[in-house]
């Protein structure tokens, strides 16, 4: 594959990834937002494959497909307006958020032009996959195992937190938050 084609594919993925990333917060439906986020991740997965990290890129897409489906289901379970039949604009501190987002973009985007990174390109992708496998079960075994144990404890913790029969009795009967203003009534 020549450089021109690789560049064209990269810019297509990059543009797609950033536009769909923006659309996540600019759409009327949370369901659409989840699918836009998935598209953004798929674009990044494609760029990772182009960069030579084939395994990471494909695993990112694999993982995100399941995650976005769960996200869509959670949205319909708890959130208002999942279908997008009405306009949705649920934001707070919007100006601050825009400023913070733009500021962090400018700050981070200027870094690669201010810092000189060493020029040591990685070898061929196929070797990279095999090397990652050796690294996972070789020198970085402890890291890999720790990640596994962290995931296991997350699973247990998530099940305990989300359980209906909570620690202090049935979760639905749990604490109703007191209102801040006296006499304002609860917002149930």
């Amino acid at each position: 594959m020549n450089d021109l084609l690789a560049d064209a594919i990269f810019w297509a993925f990059a543009a797609g990834s950033v536009t769909t990333g923006l659309r996540v917060f600019r759409t009327d439906s949370m369901m659409r937002a989840a699918f836009y986020l998935l598209a953004s991740f798929a674009g990044v997965g494609g760029i990772l494959v182009l960069l030579g990290a084939e395994f990471l890129g494909m695993v990112l897409i694999l993982m995100m497909a399941g995650e976005m489906l769960i996200m869509a289901i959670v949205m319909v379970m708890f959130m208002m307006n999942p279908a997008g039949l009405n306009p949705m604009w649920m934001v707070h501190q919007h100006r601050v958020a825009v400023a913070a987002g733009a500021g962090s973009f400018v700050l981070l985007a200027s870094l690669p032009f201010l810092v000189k990174f060493p020029d040591r390109p990685a070898p061929q992708p196929e070797e990279a996959t095999a090397e990652l496998g050796t690294e996972l079960l070789g020198d970085s075994m402890l890291v890999f195992q720790t990640a596994g144990v962290a995931l296991l404890s997350t699973m247990i913790g998530a099940v305990v937190i989300a359980n209906r029969s909570g620690r202090f009795g049935v979760a639905e009967e749990g604490s109703q938050e007191p209102t801040v203003e006296p006499g304002a009534g609860d917002q149930r």
């Binding site: 996540v24 917060f25 760029i47 501190q93 987002g101 700050l107 981070l108 870094l111």
Partner: peptide, 18 residues
């Protein structure tokens, strides 16, 4: 690539705050 990554992080910061 780093500019694209910065754009994604910037959008994420905006979303998480807003």
């Amino acid at each position: 690539v780093l500019v694209v990554a910065a754009a994604l992080v910037g959008i994420g910061v905006y979303g998480a705050l807003s």
